[in-house]
Amino acid sequence: MRRSRPSVNAGSMADIAFLLLIFFLITTTIQSEAGINRKLPPPKDDIPEGFILKRNLLVIELNSKDEIMINDTIRKLSELKRIAMNFIDNGADCNYCKGAKDAHMSIHPDKAIISLRSNRDTGYDAYINVQNELVGAYRQLRNRESMRLFNISYDELKLQYSKTGEIAIKNKLKTIQEMYPEKISEAELKQ
């Protein structure tokens, strides 16, 4: 008669694995690693006020109650993107802009500067909201020009570049960036 070897009972294996699984499920925090990229100006390099025409400057102020003031009138956040786009794309002296060519707004996207001023008591939420809208405005304009020139959106180009790293795509990106350079100046905070 063959002697049967005692086998380890594997019935509790599932329980152990479940325990571990639940532990990892709970401790997992899929981190939110996305945000708005910005480049700070080098120290002691604020844009000299005297050389900028008033029409080339869009002053956005955030006060301590998180209200948005654009060129001295209080505006809603939802209007901000449109105002910014109209201002950047006005292009009185620019052959690819589709703006109104208003005599009181920017001459060229290259000259148009958005000055964002905030108060010490402004909330960070409100500040990010404004930044978000401004980035959105630039992005929409860039996408439009990219569609016109290369028949592909700017976002799509960026995605392709991060995948392939081709120089040709980089040059295309650069062309668009030069057409609509992001010029957002943040003066030192108001006390």
Partner: peptide
């Protein structure tokens, strides 16, 4: 800015801005 760490990222959650 003083230490020339100029590339920054305001880390955010992704979603509609009106949630703020």
């Amino acid at each position: 800015r003083e230490v020339q760490a100029l590339k920054i990222n305001y880390t955010t959650r992704i979603g509609d801005a009106s949630d703020n």
